[in-house]
Amino acid sequence: MEALLLGLSTGTSCLVFCGPVILPYMLGEGISIKRSLADILVFLGSRLIVYILLGLLAALIGQTFFRTEIYREIITGSAYIILSITLVLYAFLRIKPLCLLKNIHDVPANQPDRRTMAVPLIGGLVTGLSLCPALLLAFTGATSEGSILKSILYFILFFAGTTVYFIPLMFLGLIHGRNVIHIIGKFAAGIAGIFFFIKGLIMLINSFSR
């Protein structure tokens, strides 16, 4: 659940801050639905690859540094509390998370003859690596999963959560609803932040009461 919650809370960052760069390309005029769908699948697929790699990295770090359960609970609990506060701040303050895709210019929008799979591929890779509190929280959560498979699964669920916001765009191109999706996502981030704060607190209480 945690991973999914986090994905849902960060999905709007990808959508609102990275989406405007990639979506005009994907939803350009004269593009067939089939091609548009293929672009989006490549975009999401490359993000999934990044998340699987991050899951693997988190598992390796977890197995290297967090061998004792009590330390793992203290470190993870503290990280949850600190990062959840930043997630709540992101939700309720006007903070724009870093989107690496913003640095890519000259995306050939609306030009079917110049389209290449490289754009959605690179787009997916760099949005997957965009730093935000939720991604850091997911990384922290994945390190404490205990096995490589579980850590990767954690990131796959995180990916599923972030992808939810792209679904309506895939089929509707609803530019009008983007602001609403962003607002709902901000609230989701705030709620998820509070959830992780409480979870961190419970972990700390449990570890200190042993």
Binding site: M1, L5, L157, V164, I183, I184, K186, F187, A188, I191
Partner: peptide, 25 residues
């Protein structure tokens, strides 16, 4: 007025997390 969207965030979170966890979150 934006607070009217908050319940939709809760719906999104609880509907999906309940589906994944198979428990009424």
């Amino acid at each position: 007025i934006l607070f009217r969207w908050s319940a939709f965030a809760v719906l999104l979170l609880v509907a999906l997390s309940s589906a994944f966890l198979l428990s009424p979150v």
